[in-house]
Amino acid sequence: MINLLSRTIMMGTPLLFGALAEVIAERTGMMVTAIEGIFLMGAWAGFVGGYLSGSLIVGFLSAMLAGLLVAGLYGWICIYLKQHQVVTGVAINLLVAGLCSFLYRVIFGVPITPLTVSPLATIPIPLLSEIPLLGPILFNQTILTYIIYFLAPLSYFMLYKTSMGLTIRSAGENPEAVDVAGINVLTVRFLTVLLAGVMGGVAGAFYSIGFLGMFTTNIIGGRGWIAFAICFLGNWNPKGAVIGTLAFGFAEAIAIYMQSIGNSALFPNELFIALPYIMTIVLTISRKSFNVPAKLGVPYLKEN
């Protein structure tokens, strides 16, 4: 059980990175539908950087840069060229999928055995990890999990207690108000999308060099979309995102657990793999009174 909960926190970490990124960007009115591609590019760049340099830090830095570039392309097309967010996201995700497997081939050719790096090690925190029950669950994790412990409250504070947060929240509710207040709406939106790219890149790299130690083209397999869904279900609020992430992390931990025990022929362990996705659908249906940013997905047009 402790193992399962510890897994929950671990698998929840990248999802929360992605979900917080999505929350911040969506509060300005930008759905980052390229999130799946950002995750994938992050996973790819993280692995390439980490493998070639032998340093995971370089890996994560390259993942951040790669996420930034994908988000930059997405933001440029959607914010400055005012194209459709859903459509653009789909296109970029497809492009990134092609790019990643093509460039992997360019760099590594066709290796006989899969290339691996040793993934992030868990760092037990002295004293704290000794606490019964909570210790091994919360404080025997990788560095990324400890970072997210800070990032989650920080993003909440930023959104609700600072002028930057006020601007971000206003841009998604009534961009005209922000414009009239002398702040450039497009810049605000673009910067948050770039931030989402950096955070999403880290999240993607978690899967390749933080957990598996290798890269495959289907490594993300819809987890970017799960982060996207958590943002919706968490009501565009960092608190909600944390709760949603725990639920999804738990579902994923169960799925991994079930795969390891369920070996009888007719046991539908495929359905447990699909559990997070089924959960999204169920939650989308049962979740009422959404607090959607009023201008989510609407480009800011000013006749000129």
Binding site: G222, A265, L271, A274, Y277, I278, T280, I281, I285
Partner: peptide, 30 residues
């Protein structure tokens, strides 16, 4: 679910693909 519960059809349709995939994999294995 879009009509009745005002669910986001973009999300639901996206997720339903993974569910369909799981169903197909299950049936193909069994």
């Amino acid at each position: 679910v879009k009509a009745r519960y005002n669910s986001n059809e973009f999300l639901v349709s996206m997720m339903s693909t993974y569910v369909a995939l799981a169903i197909m994999n299950y049936l193909l294995r069994t």
